[in-house]
Nucleic acid binder design. Structure first.
Lengths: 317, 317
DNA sequence: CCATAGATTAAGTGAGACTAATGCTACCAG
DNA sequence: CTGGTAGCATTAGTCTCACTTAATCTATGG
């Protein structure tokens, strides 16, 4: 069906120079080889591509058409391969990264921006989603690597993935100060808070139940859920409106807690942690661009003001 | 520089099926051959195109990019080759034809139209020009064949061209009836007409001199040229305005002569003929479309009303 | 008219494309 | 846990075919 592709390449050079000899020079072979290739291509296609004039080849209409098909490809290929090669010397091109919704929306844009300061030829696509979705994206080759919640969602990404912890989020139960004072009356005992109002985050259905199980060792099957939101921001709004309590990552409300608008409700147990890890194929050889970005990312996450934001949290006693 | 093109084809199929085995089936080779090809391509490009997961290949970003380059080409190539093949069964595609200006403008459109009634998939481009220009177009492969004046312009298209006479134009000296009566006073002798007014056609500078040489055996170096036009239509207008005489193909003024508005001035010699021939490369194998059209063209030119138009001419005695 | 340039053709050879067989490893069924 | 299987990689061996060298052909230019 399809002809030998190398012969198409030969044809391209023959057409370009309207000459077997010039093609032979371009391809570093003898004119004889080119002539034979051309002949075989014409046989394969059962179509004369040139009319032979002594010392000259004049393309037939079919030859013209074939060339019109091949030419743009040659151009694309050459520039495409070049830019792929450039990527090996200097970070450039597109980096496709997956992340959990909140982390991706709030932390990553800043990191992307600072990276692009140094490497303006790098662009990003950010895919937000839950661990299952992101793993799927990885499997399909749609993203280079993903930042994934690897603790709360205790999936076992065994074997083929390399998993490198990046940062631990504290998962805390929050309420507005007013709610804490007036509704809870500063009493954070199990009995007092369990039947109060809650705001949940429907993308992470288990997070509230998990918090209870961890802190009180009990499985609660039904809460008094007065609001169900689809984003961390929505949950914070609900809490600030004194509608009830909610469970989320502390760093997202770090400022509010420091200002005193929101309080984090603790128990005697250490706060539960959600570990965000960088997940990628174990035996994937990362490109220069990937390596460079990942280093930048790690450095960024190690900065004091970042780690502080993620860990220093004032809890109710 | 550029990789082995057949390996790009292999890569295309591997990517398409995300599998070495499926590619091997498509290409009718063993799995091993595909695997080796892929490996060598990656070596040539110094770029990993897939990350190997057990039983699965996941394209890297470079793999994605390469595929994006190759995919449109494969699509184009397949459909392009198909349509080239179709051309062998049914006339279709573009036919690029050259012709002298007058003949092309006046005769050919009608012929094209009638051909397209039968073969609507055929389109045309018509290039008008003098013999040198048309031969040049032929040489460059810009046109499939040309209709060329091969008599008046006694170029010798030797060797590589096949030249097939298509029609003979009578070349006549014309004047308006009024001019013939009042200025020439019905006297068409050499002495009477040689110093009268003439209208010439600058694209065919020699035509008037040739007419004199043929009919009177004399080379006239200078005529009283009162108007020089760039088209046959312009010459006819000049003649009809009684400005003078001019030499041109009779069939272009066939009706005017029959109506008596214009007279053709003859001598005892037979009228000079301009032969229009179909010129193409001798050893070119014409496509089905070309052959079919050329047959249609010949049949058209053989029709009575066409031959009549070109030959039946009433001359002054 | 010879010399030349450019294409084609013919014959021989070595690289490399392909096959067959084996190895490897994750996944699945029982 | 264990054997079976699916899919890719690897290896060794074979043979095709891409390439070279050399000869042939022919329009063209000096």
């Amino acid at each position: 069906m399809l002809p030998d592709f190398n012969r198409l390449k030969v044809f391209y050079y023959v057409y370009s120079g309207k000459s077997v000899i010039s093609a032979a020079q371009m391809l570093n072979v003898t004119q004889s080889a080119v002539s034979q290739h051309l002949k075989k291509l014409e046989e394969e296609l059962k179509t004369l591509l040139f009319t032979r004039l002594h010392k000259r080849l004049v393309p037939t209409y079919e030859g013209e058409r074939l060339f019109e098909i091949i030419k743009p490809f040659m151009v694309e290929l050459e520039s495409g391969l070049q830019s792929i090669k450039d990527t090996k010397v200097k970070p450039s091109g597109l980096l496709r990264i997956g992340a959990p919704a909140e982390f991706g929306k709030i932390q990553l844009p800043e990191i992307f921006a600072s990276f692009r300061q140094k490497y303006p030829d790098v662009t990003f696509t950010l895919t937000l989603g839950n661990p299952e979705y992101l793993i799927n994206m990885l499997n399909e080759g749609q993203i280079e690597f993903a930042l994934i919640d690897t603790f709360l969602t205790q999936k076992d990404f065994s074997g083929i993935y390399s998993i490198e912890p990046v940062i631990d989020e504290e998962i805390v139960l929050i309420a507005s100060s007013k709610y804490y004072e007036e509704v809870l009356k500063r009493d954070t005992s199990f009995e007092n808070i369990v039947d109060k109002e809650y705001i949940t985050f429907h993308a992470k259905g288990m997070i509230l139940k998990n918090w209870y199980r961890y802190h009180f060792g009990k499985m609660i099957s039904k809460f008094n859920i007065v609001l169900n939101v689809d984003s961390a921001l929505g949950l914070v709004s609900g809490v600030k409106s004194h509608m009830g309590m909610g469970v989320m990552a502390s760093h997202l409300v770090h400022e509010d807690i420091q200002k005193g608008d929101i309080v984090a409700i603790g128990t005697d147990k250490k706060d539960i942690l959600n570990r965000i890890s960088l997940v990628q194929f174990q035996d994937k050889k990362p490109s220069l661009t990937e390596k460079t970005f990942q280093n930048h990312f790690r450095d960024f996450m190690k900065q004091d003001h970042v780690t502080a934001k993620f860990s220093k949290i004032i809890r109710t006693p």
